[in-house]
Design a protein around this nucleic acid. Structure first.
Length: 433
RNA sequence: GCGGUAUUGGUGAAGUGGUUAACACACCGGAUUGUGGUUCCGGCACGCGUGGGUUCGAUUCCCACAUACCGCCCCA
């Protein structure tokens, strides 16, 4: 036996059957995005390393330990994209889409693979897929809400139940800096009591201590100051309008003042849509997350232009849909299975399937030289609506036997009629139906 | 990166330190000549994740590695 190859760790083959769900997800997303006037943007799967390191934050885990970065033969430091936003923003800036000739907000969506070097688990892989949207050029809280509503609507259309929208604000830079300091001041006296993880986080990214899973940490954090008390008037106003707009649309939400983001570029509104399903372990798991990133365009060399968006994990989404048994439309039903009896009919059956296909129907035939009985079994298993049988006798008569698999009714039809208008034969020749 | 569990055919799985690796599903074939969901009969792992080791002998014991899954970290 030769060497057997395995796919690389953390990757998956999406096989026929599963790919139907993926196509359904993607098609549903494209259709919905179009109604919101978001257009597709396609950016490279790898970028200069700095595109991600600058935007995600030099100390973020994504950059420090999860990035697939490498030097190419020209000694360029590149990285496989760990998320979608940075590349889109780079493209936005590089193509000067911030210019006056494009309508603002400039709304785009993307879908495709992302890469992170981490321990695979269910719904978490090294090559995974995201669908995301970004809207540039407006500070309006209503735009934040449009993006949130889009996310909620998409998940709803895809059949997900038990969704929870968690909402928070990181405020502007001033709010955030003030809060960060207050949080450090609060946690410092408890330093020795904190978990080892949180000790590290305290100075690297103190906000992360807030969502520590450690019970003792949670007890300490329970009395910590809230970001909401450190917002500047402008940040408060923005957040209030976001909430008011959500209320106006009847979208329920929970404000979670301890929710933070792993990527450093977020500010103001941040949100997560979580689903409660055993498919992804106990409790609520985030499927879709996003927020505002007003400094990001400038960070990558563009003008001071705000942005807001979200990304959703397709693997997680698909797991949830499967757990909820969401019905995916099956659009590859078989209309006609052509049964050929004897080698001499092979040429005619080939012409028949081609003719039926050309008429816009789906058709298939046997290529394994199997007996009629086996061919009918296959037709039945494939749920063919009709079988068209041709043997040496029919070949001589220039006819074929058309059978409705549902009723069992079988009629003889001239081949000429089939080649001329198969659809008409089906609709007019049977007595029933 | 850390800790844990697992790894037998296309699938679900049973099983033993030693002649032919149980059973079920799926698939393929047959039940007198060319017609489909039932029934009956038959076929289907030269191999038990990979590589070493222990042993007279290992799929069964030991070690390493790989992969999957779970928890941590982190995140979609």
């Amino acid at each position: 036996m030769l060497m057997r190859y395995q796919r690389p760790k953390g990757t998956a083959d999406i096989l026929p059957g599963d790919s139907q769900i993926w196509q359904y997800v993607e098609a549903t997303a494209r259709k919905l995005f179009a109604t919101y006037r978001f257009d597709e943007i396609r950016t490279p799967m790898f970028e200069n390393f700095e595109v991600f390191s600058r935007t995600s934050g030099d100390t973020s885990d994504i950059v420090t330990k999860e990035m697939y970065d490498f030097k190419d033969k020209g000694d360029r430091h590149l990285s496989l994209r760990p998320e979608g936003t940075a590349g889109v923003v780079r493209a936005f800036v590089e193509n000067k889409l911030y210019g006056p000739e494009t309508q603002k907000p400039y709304k785009v969506y993307y879908m495709g693979p992302m890469f992170r070097y981490e321990r695979p688990q269910s719904g978490r892989q090294r090559q995974f897929h995201q669908i995301g949207v970004e809207a540039f050029g407006s500070d309006a809280p209503e735009l934040d809400v449009e993006v949130i509503a889009l996310g909620m609507t998409l998940l709803g259309k895809l059949g997900l139940k038990h969704l929870r929208l968690a909402l928070n604000t990181l405020g502007d830079k001033k709010s955030r800096d003030a809060y960060r300091q207050a949080l450090i001041d609060f946690l410092e006296p408890h330093f020795e009591e904190l978990s080892d993880d949180s000790k590290v986080r305290l100075h690297k990214n103190p906000l992360r201590v807030l969502d520590s899973k450690d019970k003792h940490d949670q007890a300490i954090v329970a009395d910590a100051p809230s970001i909401l008390d450190f917002l500047t008037p402008a940040a408060t106003s923005h957040f209030d309008r976001v909430k008011a707009s959500l209320d106006a649309l009847g979208i329920a939400y929970d404000v979670d003042a301890t929710m933070v983001r792993g990527l450093d570029y977020y500010n103001h509104t941040i949100f997560e849509i979580m689903a409660d399903s055993p498919a992804l372990g106990e409790g609520y798991t985030t499927v879709l997350a996003g927020g505002r990133y007003n400094g990001l365009v400038e960070e990558l060399g563009g003008p001071d232009m705000p942005g807001v968006g979200f990304g959703l994990g397709v693997e997680r989404l698909v797991l949830l849909m499967q757990a909820e048994k969401v019905a995916v439309p099956n659009d590859n039903a078989l209309d006609v299975y052509v049964v050929g009896i004897g080698d001499e009919t092979s040429l005619e059956t080939l012409k028949l399937v081609q003719s039926i296909r050309a008429a816009g129907l789906t058709a298939d035939r046997d290529y394994l030289g199997r007996k009629p009985k086996a061919q009918f079994k296959t037709a039945n298993r494939l749920s063919a609506a009709y079988t068209l049988t041709i043997g040496s006798q029919e070949l001589a008569d220039q006819t074929a036997n058309l059978k409705s698999m549902a009723t069992g009714e079988e009629i003889s039809v001239p081949l000429a009629d089939i080649y001329q208008d198969f659809e008409k034969v089906v609709t007019t020749k049977f007595t029933a139906k």
